[in-house]
Structures are given as C-alpha cells and as structure tokens.
Design a protein around this nucleic acid. Structure first.
Length: 697
DNA sequence: CTAGGGTTAG
C-alpha cells in the first residue's frame, strides 16, 4: 500500500492512449521544451508533465532538471516527480548523475524519503552530491540517525565530504543533541579547511548551544570573522532559550556596532527577552530602531512590541502599536486582549475579545486566564460555557484554567467532572493539568483526594506539585504535616520562594509560631534571598502569631517597602489589638511616600474601632475619597457602622445609614439594630427593622 | 545544484 513503485507507474503510462509514437524532430522538441518551460513558469506542473508525456522521445537534460526543481518547490508534486523520473529513464537509459540527484531531492522535498532512498540505492554510480542530497533530506526531516549512518558510509566509501555534507550532519547533531559527535565534526570541518565558511560556523554555534554548552557556543561565535545576520540571530535566540535573557539583549545590542542589520526574527527575539525581564527602557530603544529601520509593518515584530508593552504594564502604548498596525492578525488581537485581561481590565479585554474577527484556543484561554487571575469566578464560569459551545478542542491550558475556576468556586462536583474529562482525553499525564487538578482538590477541601493524586503523580511531579500539596495542608491548618512534607520534599526537589510563602501562610493560619520560626531559620541558613513576597509572608506569620515585635523587626530589615507589606503590618497591629501602633505605622508609611490603598484604609478604620477614635475614624473615612482618591468599598462602610455602633454614636450612625450610597447588607443592619437596642434609639431601630423586612420579601 | 537561523499570543 501507499507508494506505487516507479516501474508500474511507468507501465501504466506507456499503455496510456495519448502515447502514440511520433518521429522526433529537432523543431518539435525545441517547441515542446519551450511550451513545458512556459507551463512551469506559470506554476502549472501537471500540464507541464502531461505535455512531456505526450512526446515519447528524449528531451534535453536541462528540461528534466527544471521539472524536478519545480516538483521540489511545490512539495506536493510527488506523483509528478515520479512521472518525470519514469520519462527520463525510459528515453534516456543512462542519465547523468546530477539529474538523478535532482530526482532524489524532489522526492525528499515532497516528503517521500522512501522514494528518495529507493532511487539512491538503485543508482549505478553516485557522486558527492548524491550523498549530500540524501543526508540533507534526513537532516531536514528529523532523522538524525539515518543521516549519521549515511555520513559514515560515505566516508567508508572514500567520498569526500564537503560544506553541504557538514551542514546536514551538523543540523542532525543539533536535533539529536549529540555533543561528542558535534565536536568530532567540528574537528573534521577544521581539518578539511572549511573554517572560513560562515554557514558552517553558524551551525557550530547553534549546535553547541543546543547541546547546552553556551560557553563553547560563545567561543565559537567569537572565532567567526564576519558573523552575518543569521549568525547573530542564532546567538540571540540561543541565549533566550537558555534563559539568559540579559545576554540575549546584550548580544542584540552588539549587532549595531558590527553594522549587521537584524532580521525581523531577531527583533522579535530581543523584544521577547526584554518583556521576560520587564526591561521597558531597552525595549523602547529597540522600538526606536524598529521605526528607524521601517520594520514596524512586520506583524511578528509589532506583535512582539505589543507584548513588550503590555507585559511592562504599559497598556496604552501597547494599544497604540496595536492600533497603528495595518493588518492585525490573530496574534495581534490575542496579544492585546491578553494584555488587558492580565492587567485586571477584564471588561476592556472582553470588549476587544468580542470584536475579534477570528479566535482560536489561545485567544479564548487568554481571556479566561484574565478572569481567573483576578478571581472573577462567575464571569469565568459563564465564559467557560460560552467557550465549550464555540470551540471543539480544548487544550491543556484550558483544562488547567477550568480546574482553577472550580477551585475558586469551591465546586468540588464540577471539579470531579473536569477530572473525568481529562482522564478520558488523556490530559492527566500533562504536568500543568495534573498540578491544577491537585490544587483543585486541595482548595475544594478534599485533602485525601489531593494526597492520593499526588502519590499517583510520583513519576512526573515537580516542585509546583509539592507546593500545591503543601498549600492544601496549610489551608487545612495542618502546619505540622506541612512541615513534615517539607522535609520529604527536599529529597526530591529544591524549595522555591513560593514554598516558603505557602509554609509561612500555613504557620500563620495555624498560629504555629515555632514552625514559623523554623522556616525563617531555614531561609536564613540556606541563604535564600528574602524578597518582598517572603518578607511579607514573614511579617504576616509573626503578627498572626502575636509576635508583633518580630514582625516589626522583619519589616525594618526591608530595603524598600511596598503598600502590601505596609498593609500586612497595619492589619497585623489591628489583629493584636494595637490600634495606636497601627496608626503610627501608617504615619511612617506616608512619610516614606507610599500611597495607601483600600486595604490600608480598612486597617486604619479597624484601628479606630479598636481604640474608640470615632471622630478620627470619620475624618479618615472622608479623606479617603477626598484626599486619597480611594473609593470606599463595602468593607469600609462595614467598618464605619461598626465604629459608630460599638461606641454608641447613634445620631452619626443614623446619618451615615441615610446618606450611604450603597444598599446596606444584612450583617450591617443586624449589627446596627443591636446598637439601637442597647442605646435605646428606637427611631433608627424601626427604620432598620423595616429594611430587614424588605430584604426578606 | 545541494547548506545555516526563525513564527510573535494563553
């Protein structure tokens, strides 16, 4: 089945009715040749080949070469290639080797390595080009072992390798990550005197980098006298792949003193490097070069620019690039949607998403990822249903996000359904999906299922799996077990800063001061860097565990403090009934020039409740929107009602209720009703009772 | 005549 041997094709064709023998004449051959060539020029291969077959006579070898070339370019003309070979062999029994090489090439380019190999094996005599063309084919189609075998045979038969041979072999080395072989080939390249060949030299840079030895790749790069645009592209891309994004950007910058114009891909690679380290300055400089060289109409480049800006939090700049793009493609749209979605502007993102001319899984995932990132679970759920109706094949990202949604909604039943789905569709072996599943069971309160699944993952779990399990122990207030797991974890993988964050949160929620101190000690002993996130976790843990002094000590150790760590300590003070301290710390925070946010004000109001500072609290509440431009939320109204209620400020409470721009909630009303009864303030009490009754209908 | 790099978005 499958491939029809060339001989039988030939037999069929010879029996074909239009093959009436004609005496060949010089003029007709020349005329037909011209005709065939003109068909080829128009890209009509079929017509060209059938015209060829109308004339059972030999044609100039040149024409066959053109025909084979056309088949190679088309890549789907396998049948035509076989026909041309048949015709050639029928009427010219001893074709020159170079023509057969072209035939092998045509077969290979059309994807039929079998035909290529068959012809190769049958050839009475081969030249270097014959070997090269097949080695190249094996290399390009990802059969490195075959390429190596052929290369060895070739050497054994005494055929001398040339640049083309080495290019193929090095390509195969790169695919197979064959470092030792690459070094041997490097030796041969040198020995044969091909060292000045920039293509081979670039391949060597590429091979060393793909084998994971960036130092050797860099050394090789510096040996090249005149690296060209491809060479530069290789070195930039390989540093990016190796995760050394700084070096990638640095190498990119060195292209300009070397006066080599970057390729569009190189711009893109450099921009990706910038966005991955949030290097806005460098990225903007590259943007400048893009404009100067006039490549901003290239979608790959501009899409990378959009991505750079949105990843650096510059949505407007990103949108501008998007807007100025002449032909926006799927990637441009997805990039801008993703930018808005991942910055919390899910509404704007959704508007753009709905305007998209076409969408794929990635665009849907980008939008869904925004909803989940910002815990908009109900929007996410609606969106998932919409997505299920609109798109057939969900992928591993979709399924992981769906687990996040069920986890966020604590919908254990739905989580189990998704679990069933991934099992049926074979996604359970995907690490990302597995970890999301683990996380879902942990968050839905099913520690046992989480544990069972974690054990089943023993062959493919990673650090993230461990962190997920630790987090579910933490959420179940099992800090002791979490700590035991932490020691087990170290047999298998190294902890990350997320591990510490999780463990410290676990200790905080379980008020496990001793364990918390152990973790703190571990971090210091193993010289892990205490970044803002870990520092905040430490402050949180110590203040939860009623060690406010330690918490403040840790806070003081920070080089810089953001609003989150300040909120943590202020809330921590409130938790420890230290309202005055909270307000003092707020003063320090302001002096450091940190703008308070809604959480900060919640802390301040709580502190006022704690200390009975009713007038001061009211003043703070007013200044919130007037001075600080922080819109009061439900929890702030809640605090104010608590403040007035607890301290018997009934007139103020009544005023507050009646001027409140939002509907009071049941807990607010019952809290206030309580106060009315205690303070015998019937007028407001009646109003509240009425309100509560309204709610019940 | 046959050769190297690369596709941006979740």
């Amino acid at each position: 089945m499958g491939v029809t041997p060339a001989a039988s094709v030939l037999k069929q064709l010879l029996n074909h009715r239009n093959l009436k023998p004609q005496p060949p004449t010089a003029t007709s051959t020349a005329a037909v040749t011209t005709k065939i060539l003109s068909y080829l020029k128009q890209g009509r291969i079929r017509s060209a080949v059938s015209t060829l077959f109308s004339f059972p006579q030999p044609f100039p070898f040149d024409l066959y070469a053109h025909l084979f070339r056309a088949c190679s370019d088309h890549r789907r003309a396998i049948v035509e290639a076989r026909k041309v070979e048949s015709h050639l062999l029928t009427f010219s029994p001893n074709p020159p080797t170079f023509l057969l090489n072209r035939a092998i090439e045509a077969y290979a380019k059309c994807g039929s390595l079998r035909d290529a190999r068959e012809l190769f094996d049958e050839m009475p005599q081969r030249d270097g080009g014959t070997w090269n063309v097949l080695i190249t084919a094996y290399s390009q189609f990802g059969f490195p072992e075959e390429a190596f075998k052929l290369f060895l045979c070739m050497n054994r038969e005494g055929i001398r390798a040339n640049e083309i041979t080495f290019a193929g072999v090095l390509g195969s080395c790169a695919v197979a990550c064959e470092l030792v072989l690459s070094m041997q080939v490097h030796g041969l390249v040198t020995k044969f005197g091909f060292c000045g060949n920039v293509i081979l030299e670039s391949s060597l840079v590429d091979v060393y980098a793909k084998c994971g030895v960036m130092d050797d790749a860099r050394k090789m790069f510096h040996e090249i006298v005149r690296p060209n645009a491809v060479t530069w592209n290789v070195i930039v891309r390989r540093y990016l792949d190796a995760g050394d994004v700084r070096e990638a950007v640095f190498m990119f910058s060195r292209m300009f003193p070397a006066a080599v114009r970057p390729l569009n891909f190189t711009f893109s690679n450099a921009l990706v490097a910038c966005s991955s380290m949030a290097a806005l300055e460098e990225g903007m400089q590259i943007h400048g070069v893009v404009v100067k060289l006039g490549v901003q109409e290239d979608n790959v480049v501009s899409n990378s620019l959009i991505n750079l800006y949105v990843k650096c939090g510059k949505l407007e700049e990103g949108y501008q690039v998007f807007n100025q793009l002449g032909s926006k493609d799927l990637v441009s749209w997805t990039s801008i949607v993703s930018g808005y979605a991942m910055s919390g502007k899910t509404w704007e993102a959704r508007k753009l998403f709905d305007e998209m001319p076409e969408r794929n899984v990635i665009s849907w995932n980008a939008m869904l990822a925004g909803y989940t990132r910002f815990s908009e679970w109900y929007e996410a759920l609606d969106f998932v249903y919409l997505m299920l109706g609109a798109i057939k094949d969900l992928d591993h990202v979709t399924l992981s996000l769906m687990f996040n949604v069920t986890a966020g909604l604590s919908d254990h039943e739905m989580g189990k359904k998704v679990h069933g789905y991934i099992y049926r569709h074979g996604f359970h072996l995907n690490l990302m999906v597995s970890n999301a599943l683990l996380d879902m069971y942990g968050k839905c309160g099913n520690l046992n299922s989480a544990r069972v699944w974690f054990n089943q993952m023993s062959n493919w779990r990673d650090r993230i799996s461990w962190n997920a399990l630790l987090a579910s122990y933490g959420n179940h207030h099992l800090s002791e077990q979490a700590l035991t797991m932490f020691s087990e974890m170290q047999w298998e993988t190294k902890p990350s800063k997320y591990t510490f964050g999780t463990l410290l949160a676990a200790c905080a929620n379980a008020f496990a001061l001793d364990h918390g101190k152990q973790i703190h000690g571990f971090i210091i002993r193993h010289e892990f860097q205490i970044d803002t996130i870990i520092r905040t976790a430490l402050v949180y843990m110590y203040s939860k565990c009623r060690c406010l002094d330690y918490a403040i000590e840790v806070l003081k150790g920070a080089v810089s403090r953001d609003v989150i760590i300040w909120n943590t300590i202020i809330m921590g003070c409130c938790h420890n009934h230290k309202g005055i301290e909270a307000l003092e710390l707020f003063g320090v925070m302001e002096a450091e020039g940190i703008m308070p946010d809604h959480v900060t004000f919640q802390g301040i109001l709580l502190a006022c409740v704690e200390e009975g500072l009713v007038e001061f609290g009211a003043k703070c509440f007013k200044s919130m929107s007037n001075q600080y431009r922080v819109l009061p939320r439900l929890e702030h109204y809640d605090c104010m009602i608590e403040l007035y209620s607890r301290h018997g400020y009934m007139v103020e409470l009544e005023n507050f209720f009646k001027t409140m721009p939002i509907e009071p909630t049941i807990p607010m009303l019952t809290r206030a009703l309580d106060a009315c009864q205690k303070n015998e303030y019937a007028r407001l009490g009646e109003w509240i009772t009425e309100k509560i009754n309204e709610f019940q209908h």
